[in-house]
Amino acid sequence: MIGSPPALQLYSVREQLATGRMPVLRRIAAFGYGAVEPYDVRTDPERLRADLDEAGLAVCAVHAKALGEDADVLLRGTQAVGGGTVIVSSMPRERFADAEGIAALAHELNDAAAKAADYGLRLGYHNHEFELASLVGGRTGLEVLEDALDPAVILEVDTYWAAVGGQDVPELLGRLGDRVRYLHVKDGPVTRQDPQTAVGSGRMPVAEILAACPSAEWHVVELDSCATDMLTAVGDSLAWLAGHDLAKPVRAGAGT
């Protein structure tokens, strides 16, 4: 189950990054994370890449809505930070209201994947709860979308939001199959509004979820919000994963 180094979605530490990037990146690396998933490659991606290099952090993917007129600048930014995959982080929930809307979205994502391929990049889609909270023709919106996607488009399943959407996450991952190449690993009370917690201290069956998705290339820790100190929770998350043989910290002695 342990392949790629543990990764962190940088959105988790957005507030800390705003006060000074290098100290935060160094602390992420000191915890034992080996990679990050940036969410802003529009603002000076070359400088971000240099800072990541200095901290010893790779890029597992980038979150960016590389669609329409924004596509080229975001795809170039993804290249600049060294990401091989660009993941569409969200779309309006009304796009999943019916089968026609989902089909139109799939067409847009397929076109975006072809454009990303021109840059040597792979395109993915990341879910929230609404793609899974209501059924379209008896199936979840995410599964309907998957059926209409070009095989080149991969999925990053946010396991927490899938659970908030009412899904048994291991069963969902089994249905989605090999298209899932990234997992967002997070924990908490499994509610939409309450703060999340460090991985291992909430209600998510994390070990069962990770075991249910052997196709995942990366496990990416993320906390959208946290009632405690965010950086402490980020470190505690990796320590818990490492303590349960679900992650291998990059630095010796880290994550323990």
Score class of each variant (00 low, 15 high):
G3E: 10
S4F: 06
R14C: 00
A18P: 12
T19R: 14
R21A: 09
P23V: 10
R27M: 02
V36G: 00
A50I: 10
D51Q: 15
D53C: 07
E54Q: 15
A58M: 04
A58V: 01
A61R: 01
A61I: 04
A64H: 03
K65S: 11
A66P: 02
G68N: 01
D70V: 08
G77Y: 14
G77R: 12
G84F: 13
T85D: 12
S90A: 15
F96Y: 13
A99T: 09
E100W: 05
E100D: 13
A103Q: 14
L105P: 01
A112K: 08
A112D: 07
A112G: 02
K115D: 01
H126N: 01
H126P: 00
S134Y: 05
L135G: 04
G138H: 09
E143F: 11
D147F: 09
L155N: 01
D158R: 08
T159D: 06
T159K: 13
T159F: 09
A163H: 07
V169H: 11
G174Q: 10
L176G: 03
D178I: 03
V180K: 12
K186C: 02
K186I: 03
D187P: 07
D187H: 04
G202S: 12
M204I: 08
L210E: 04
S215F: 10
S215R: 13
E217C: 06
T228I: 05
G235C: 09
S237W: 05
D245A: 14
V250E: 02
A254L: 05
G255H: 00
